[in-house]
C-alpha cells in the first residue's frame, strides 16, 4: 500500500513550493489516476516518489508497505518495487538497450535476493515482453532510446516496467505523443500488469488514456494540492468542464 501523507515539496535549489500538502492512499490491486493542468506538480510528485534529489520534502511522508521511503536512494526504491515511467524518457548514447535492461534487471534481482538471469533466460524474457509491445528486439541492440520516435520511447518504458516487475507503477503522461494504435498497445501492456499485488498511479492530462486503463479512482491535482477525488466518471466530467474551476487555465 502507498500512503502519501501531507506531502510538501519544494525545489532543492530554490524556495519555491510545488506540492503543498498531498494526501493519497493507493491499496494493492488499485489503479488511481491523477489528472491536472500543466504545471500543477504531477511530474514533481512522480519524481519525488522515485527519489529524485532535485526536490526536497519539507513536510509529510511517503510510506510504501508501511515504511517511509524518503531516506531511500532511487535504486533502493526500485528494489522495493517502485517504478517510474518517465514523461520524457532519457536517451543514453553508447549504452545498448539490452545491456541497460540486463544491468538493471540483474541489479534488482541481486537486491531482491534472487539469482541473476543467464543470457538465454534473459533473452527469452526480453523477446516475450517485446513481442507483446510490438518492439523489435533488434531495436534494443541500439543505444537506449537514441533515435527512437516518441511512441517507441514510451513503449520502451513499458517494456522496462514489464521486465523489472515493480509493485508500484507510476506512469507519467505515458499517453502523450501516442497515436491511437500506439495508445492501445501501451494500454494493453499496462493492463497486462494489473494484478492484485500491484498498485498503479497513472498521471495524465487527458481523459483519453483512462478509456483504456480504467482507474478505480481519479484525483485532480491543481495548485499543488488534490482538489477533488472521485470515481472514473470524474475524468469524463473534467473532459467536459476543463480545469478552469480549479483556478488554473485549461490547456
Amino acid at each position: 500500500m502507498l500512503e502519501i501523507k501531507n506531502l510538501h515539496v519544494k525545489i532543492t535549489q530554490e524556495d519555491k513550493p510545488i506540492l503543498k500538502g498531498i494526501d493519497l492512499t493507493i491499496a494493492e490491486g488499485e489503479v488511481h489516476a491523477i489528472m491536472g493542468p500543466n504545471g500543477s506538480g504531477k511530474s514533481t510528485l512522480a519524481h519525488v516518489l522515485a527519489g529524485r534529489d532535485d526536490y526536497e520534502v519539507t513536510e509529510g511522508d511517503i510510506l510504501w508497505n508501511g515504511e517511509s521511503i524518503l531516506e531511500m536512494a532511487p535504486d533502493e526504491r526500485a528494489a522495493a518495487g517502485v517504478f517510474l515511467a518517465f514523461q520524457y524518457p532519457m536517451e543514453i548514447p553508447g549504452v545498448a538497450g539490452l545491456t541497460f535492461l540486463r544491468t538493471a534487471l540483474n541489479a534488482l534481482r541481486r537486491k531482491r535476493g534472487q539469482e541473476e538471469l543467464t543470457t538465454p533466460e534473459f533473452m527469452k524474457r526480453v523477446k516475450e515482453k517485446s513481442a507483446a509491445l510490438n518492439i523489435d528486439v533488434e531495436m534494443l541492440k541500439r543505444p537506449v532510446n537514441v533515435g527512437f520516435s516518441g511512441g517507441e520511447k514510451k513503449r520502451s518504458e513499458i517494456l522496462q516496467m514489464a521486465l523489472l516487475e515493480p509493485t508500484l507503477c507510476v506512469l507519467d503522461e505515458t499517453d502523450s505523443g501516442l497515436d491511437i494504435d500506439a495508445l492501445r498497445i501501451v494500454s494493453d501492456g499496462v493492463n497486462a500488469l494489473r494484478s492484485p499485488d500491484r498498485a498503479m498511479l497513472v498521471i495524465t492530462h487527458y481523459q483519453r488514456l483512462l478509456n483504456h486503463i480504467v482507474p478505480d479512482k481519479v484525483h485532480v491535482l491543481a495548485q499543488g494540492k488534490i482538489q477533488r477525488s472521485g470515481g472514473k466518471e470524474l475524468a469524463l466530467e473534467l473532459e467536459q468542464s476543463g480545469y478552469a474551476e480549479f483556478g488554473e487555465k485549461a490547456a
Partner: peptide, 17 residues
C-alpha cells in the same frame, strides 16, 4: 537518475555512463 530509478546502483550507473 534515470539509471538509478531502474535499480542500477550509482557506482554501476556511473560506470555505464
Amino acid at each position: 537518475f534515470y539509471c538509478e530509478s531502474r535499480g542500477i546502483p550509482s557506482d554501476i550507473a556511473r560506470g555505464l555512463l
